[in-house]
Design a protein around this nucleic acid. Structure first.
Lengths: 252, 252
DNA sequence: GCTTGACCCTGCCGTAGCGTCAACTTCTAA
DNA sequence: TTAGAAGTTGACGCTACGGCAGGGTCAAGC
């Protein structure tokens, strides 16, 4: 018993174009090709098609399917590997969703794109505030540092910052306490991040003023609605402040 | 001040090919093109590039970015819409991951592909078992029904079944009780699913024997390791059995 | 034998976002 | 002047086919 391409396609719920494609790439050659060039499929070919479609439904790529079916590429290993890829993909998606959400929240709380870009540095939009709190020199140096970066470095910095903020928000949403290892690790990351901004006492190794800065930042995050929004609202900012305070007490 | 393509590309951390592509599709034309054909970018063009890259990092497609930047396509709406797409994508991925996991578990517990395909029907691999429990006629009819399906219908049926099983496992993992609305809704789905298999008492409207069948299936799921594995192990199967029992008591 | 309609074939373009040659011209510094 | 760096415009490649165009084949009816 053999069937024409249309019969097989219809029965399997795929298009004849698909079957021709599978023939083209060598995944599923017809069992017989007539003198007229017509493709004919027998029961074995249909069974192979079934296996192909099963694996395809699981999201495997056609070359991977060919590997499994032809080179007896240990199906289980292939599937496990595939799961790994899928999970990585999903994690990337999750990351992205969170990033877009944060951007949206930032927009809604009134910060525009350019402000957003330099929000986390001590830069122009906060000039007066920064100078009043930490002095002209801190503002000058960190500002020069920021504007001296290439676009790429600015984007990379922003990405690091985003990840830092994302880490805080996640920790908070997971309900950990400010004294937990997780929150303290975040605080350490936060201080590391500060160390990379020239002009700050942290970068200069001035312990006393570093402590003052870190504690001051915690207050700023809670009091300034823009910053608070960044950390998921006042509650989130309070969590960050408390974690930083605890870190100062224990580790600085 | 203006820059060459290479300077802009390097500073932004993208390739010059990318900038040419953005020019080709009209997303980012250079501010000036020399008589020699060289592209030159001024500050405005670079600023536009910055916005493009920001949106690109969020995962928006180039046409969507063009919409936002040019047609003032309400950025917030675009981002919200984008989030929706991303979430749908992630949900699809999750579905797939669970499906692949189940397939893997099935493989590990000794069922091969063809068995997996008809596992949930009353078919050949379970011939003796089915006949012993529910009689020859049930087996004959449901078996004929299965083999009378086209490949497509078989795949569709399998997909429905997978979703049913996935629903059970999710409910179980979410920790709901067998008496909860959620579990009872699943049980109703399960019975509906049975109704679609000719030869079963459920399909024929025989209440007494339907009850017997549903309760019997619950027992089978728990006792047969193959079925138990399908439902995520014995514990999951117990949850399904208890839910079905409860459903029988309340709604049949 | 001829027509009609259904079915089959082989290309080829398009998809998203560029990477990667290839072939050629232009600028820049020694 | 000349090498080498940097610029240009094509054009193909990647996934997994969809959707044409243009033309052959088959079964049935007249």
């Amino acid at each position: 018993m053999e069937w024409t391409i249309q019969q097989v396609a219809h029965s399997a719920g795929v298009s004849s174009r698909t079957l021709r494609h599978y023939d083209d790439i060598g995944l599923l050659p017809p069992s017989r090709v007539g003198d007229n060039g017509y493709r004919y499929y027998d029961a074995a070919a249909v069974a192979r098609l079934q296996r192909v479609l099963l694996l395809r439904d699981l999201g495997l790529g056609l070359p991977a399917i060919a590997d499994v079916l032809d080179r007896q590429q240990d199906e289980e290993a292939a599937l496990r590997n595939h799961i790994g890829l899928l999970e990585a993909e999903r994690d990337r998606l999750d990351q992205r969703i969170r990033a877009v959400r944060r951007t949206l929240d930032a927009r809604r709380s009134g910060r525009d794109g350019s402000m957003e870009m330099m929000l986390e540095g001590f830069n122009d939009p906060y000039r007066d505030e920064v100078i009043a709190r930490w002095g002209e020199r801190v503002f000058q140096e960190s500002n020069d540092w920021w504007h001296g970066k290439s676009l790429r470095e600015q984007r990379d910095w922003k990405q690091d910052t985003d990840r830092l903020v994302a880490g805080w928000i996640e920790a908070w949403e997971d309900g950990v306490s400010p004294t937990s290892d997780r929150a303290q690790a975040m605080a350490a990351r936060h201080v590391e991040w500060l160390r990379r901004i020239p002009g700050t006492p942290v970068a200069e190794g001035d312990r006393e003023r570093s402590i003052e800065l870190v504690r001051g930042l915690g207050r700023l995050y809670v009091e300034d609605p823009n910053y608070a929004a960044t950390y998921g609202g006042t509650d989130g900012a309070v969590f960050v402040r408390d974690s930083l305070d605890e870190y100062v007490r224990l580790s600085m």
